[in-house]
Write a protein that binds this DNA or RNA. Sequence first.
RNA 1: GCCCAUAUAGCUCAGUAGGUAGAGCGCAUCCUUGGUAAGGAUGAGGUCAGCAGUUCAACUCUGCUUAUGGGCUCCA
Length: 646
Amino acid sequence: MKFVVEGAEHSAAPEQSCADLFKAALSGKRFKNTVAVSCANELFDLSTPLARFPEGATLTPVSVDDQAGLELLRHSAAHIMAAAVKQLFPKAQVTIGPAIDNGFYYDFDNERPFTPEDFAAIEAGMQKIVAQNLPFTRRELPSADAVAFFTAQGEHYKAEIIKDLGAEKVSLYDLGGFTDLCRGPHLPHSGFVKAFKLLSVAGAYWRGDEKNRMLTRIYATAFADEAALKQYLHQIEEAKKRDHRKLGKELDLFAFHEDVAPGMVFWHPKGMLMRTILEDFLKREHLKRGYQLVQGPQILRRELWMKSGHYDNYRENMYFTDIEGDIHGVKPMNCVGHMLIYNSALHSYRELPVRLAELGVVHRHEMSGALHGLFRVRQFMQDDAHIICTPEQLEDEILGVVTLIRDLFSLFGFSYRLAVATRPAKSIGSDEAWEKATNALIKAMEKIGEPIIINEGDGAFYGPKIDCRVTDSLGREWQCSTIQVDFTLPERFDLVYVGQDGERHRPVMVHRAILGSIERFIGILIEHCAGNFPAWLAPTQARLLTVTDDQNSFALEAAEILKKFGIRAEADTRNEKLSYKVRQAQVEKIPYILVIGNQELEARSVNVRLRNGDNLGVKTLEEFADILRADCEEPFKRGGMSYSFS
RNA sequence: GCCCAUAUAGCUCAGUAGGUAGAGCGCAUCCUUGGUAAGGAUGAGGUCAGCAGUUCAACUCUGCUUAUGGGCUCCA
């Protein structure tokens, strides 16, 4: 038989394996790293007989250095872990163990949950298996036989999986004395797993369903060499350094008082200042774009939540309070307030679109286990707005919102992806309304030149939506913005407008939030820039440091002058060495450090040092103000926006 | 809500066969007036998360509660 390997034709007997073919076709070094074969986008074991492939097929070697090879290595490492666990804990049942981003896991059902104290023993067991270079051998069995096989071994989860698969036959992989149900492919032998580490244990429901038994999941990672593992562990450490919870404390931005208000933020002066600058900017930007700022009450009577449907669908996430025997609900969303504001007058088609915006504080009772720093809190502010328009205006309105998304995220240096979510199986509204609205969303994205990604059936039950995922500087994705067309609320609240024909018509209503939760966004921003906030947002923009007490009065005077320029400046006149003050300002990540010694004092100027250590030399206060102003304005130019100093 | 781990000074952490606690940073006072990432001395600071139990004795062991961390589930 003939095959194409790396562009060249090779022939081999059909009973030979891919390994035989590659051994002849590849250099020794290349062959040594080859762990699998790829043919027509499908992966196979290296031991697969050539007869399995069609004459003339292109067989691509998969190296352990490839992404695909690494995934395969991790999957095999999961089997090795399961084998080691079974040796140590024969009563433990194995379930599933896939490769994931950055590693792998395996879920076990043991009489007692595993703990990190078990790691050393399990790792030692894995090391033994790795050292033996045990082969992964594939065999196929009729499903019924496989069920009998696993049942006899007491592996009831495996038997259940096979039954649910409903296939005629299944493949099994043997590794030493351990057999696992698996599609494969796997490494030729366990010796390829040169570096691995168990990372954590976690509870995980069988099949991800909370009604099922909770299994013990062991998270781990594996690499083809020790250096890659070390680098990965180092990367985890680096990511921890920019954890917003850690930086929030270090930079004194915010804190939690878990004993009195779990899941709710106490904003300290610096954090609140930053927040205020951000909110202020958002408000101005919304006004510029034709939104009207409004504000509804924080608590509203239960009857209203019944009308809106929140009482039926969202009650368990809401807080309620009894006021003179009347149950009131704390708002989990801002919609209803905006509906009432719209309905306070009869609107003409001439007034549409009405865009009501609110930096609204909402409360949602998140489950205790779900709370996570600023990312998941129980009280937060949304940059929320509701657009009420005619069906014809919908496309332009969506375009406006998508443009705002583009401008705001590029301001912070995030990249983002938009996706349209279409009608789910369970939903309300007419086909025509769904189709019209979905098309408007897609057309608006086309107009602005965004790639069209469709998430079929992922819309809300009440309407289609556009979701936005932003990517931060570490390459992590976050769901922030959402644009949702809503077919229910206009009905429930009987929203109308008077058309040109004098008749009453039902408007279209759109919910939208850009940054989403302000708390969460600030958390993301902190990690995105590692606490090095852009100059326009930094709580302290410049700190004046004196070399000796002799410069103190000028430093205080200079700080006042800079404040008059609209700069957030402060003087550090403490009796400490300059290097000590520099270090502290640096640790606080203050964008500009202004040093004043006798030289600068004489010239009534400052020596400008940047947070990255660069020195811009001696500048007058006016010159420095210009530098800082330009630095603040720079990011706004990207979105064609402007930021004015107060 | 579920599984595992954790809870010691304002912060970061150490500690003890079970005999009521330490360091560094920060803070205060003093000395020092020093040119770009930590000058020195002295001092103040803790009901060892909360509640119960075992014990002559609990920060330490046990149970419960609360919260936090890592996950699962949830996020109409």
